[in-house]
């Protein structure tokens, strides 16, 4: 995939993760591969249960993977949590849950700095100030507690904490899903500014396609543990090849009431990962499915950095 000499910032190969359950093995991620280049935002989209949050948890070492390789700048991801934090950190969906209500903002941002670098005193204080300033907050907020802030402000604090270790890659798990639209716009803008100023890379997990289009350059579409389509956002959204991507795009309600008839309904729901359909997982819901789709897993097709797995891809329909 990557023709450059320099290794990708994050490179995941054939990552596989199953959960044991009473009813048998649940395959959450099925041999997925992805790359994030420096300074780039890669979005991971899909419905609930498609495995996107498991990808995040596996990357962060919160869950052990069954098999597969995770390389950061060409080197295996450190197993030690402290060292790992310098490679990647995470911003969670709900800042009300991810920030400790009994800690002040200062203590929240200080914690990773103390643990990983052993910083103390003035240096620590100055560093916290500059981190908070990065996200548009100041000294007056430092001694306050999370309940004194709004959702948008809390998410800024969570971002400041994630930035503390100067990790190059931030994993953002639906960072704006719990926020109002007007606040969401502010947080998205902040993420963009931080990226340009600090050369950060993001792995942006979301189910909101419009947000993905705003923030990301590359997009991966997941369905039931597999990546069904991937590539540059303008190609994947502008000219989707996989029927699932098209269906997702058509389900997004438009803000223009005159286009309400274009809202299309995909029948059925995502099947349980416990009994995944054979062949192409999407076949039971797919309008283009044939007998072959139900038998054979489609191989991945490459087309100028745009890859998709479908027996009957959409062509130049749009």
């Amino acid at each position: 995939m990557n023709n450059n000499k320099q290794p990708a910032l994050l490179s995941v190969t054939q990552l596989h993760k199953t959960y044991a359950s009473r009813d048998g093995l649940v395959t959450a991620i099925d041999h997925i591969s992805l790359e994030v280049q420096a300074g780039e935002t890669v979005a991971l989209v899909g419905e609930s249960g498609c495995g996107k949050s498991t990808v995040a948890a596996t990357l962060l070492g919160l869950l052990p993977a069954d098999s597969g390789q995770i390389l950061v700048e060409g080197r295996p991801l450190p197993t030690d949590a402290r060292a790992r934090g310098r490679s990647l950190s995470m911003v969670f969906q709900n800042p009300y849950a991810s920030l400790n209500p009994k800690m002040t903002i200062k203590a929240i941002v200080a914690e990773p700095l103390k643990v990983a670098f052993g910083w103390r005193g003035h240096a620590l204080h100055a560093r916290i100030l500059s981190l908070l300033a990065n996200v548009g907050m100041g000294e007056e907020h430092m001694e306050r507690y999370p309940h004194e802030f709004s959702g948008g402000q809390l998410q800024r604090i969570a971002i400041a904490r994630a930035l503390a270790l100067e990790s190059k890659l931030l994993v953002l798990d639906e960072p704006t899903a719990a926020l109002d639209v007007s606040v969401q716009a502010q947080v998205l803008q902040l993420l963009k500014t931080l990226q340009t100023d600090n050369g950060l890379s993001y792995l942006f997990i979301s189910h909101d396609l419009a947000t993905v289009e705003y923030l990301a350059q590359q997009v991966l579409v997941m369905y039931l543990g597999r990546i069904v389509e991937a590539g540059p956002v303008e190609q994947v959204f502008g000219r989707p090849r996989h029927p699932y991507t098209r269906a997702l795009l058509n389900s997004v309600p438009s803000i223009d009431p005159e286009r309400r008839d274009q809202l299309q309904i995909l029948s059925g729901e995502i099947p349980s990962p416990l009994n995944r359909p054979t062949g192409c997982h999407f076949a039971p819901r797919c309008p283009r499915a044939t007998g072959r789709c139900r038998r054979e897993v489609p191989a991945e097709t490459q087309d100028h950095g745009h890859r998709f797995s479908c027996h009957h891809p959409l062509n130049d329909e749009s």
């Binding site: 639209v181 007007s182 716009a185 803008q189 396609l209 419009a210 947000t211 289009e213 803000i255």
Partner: peptide, 23 residues
Amino acid sequence: LKLMGTVPKLGQGSQPLGFIPGQ
């Protein structure tokens, strides 16, 4: 109008989003 401007819309790429200053 402001509220409508803050919504990212499909098909508009990474055009800057509007935002409402203040609280």
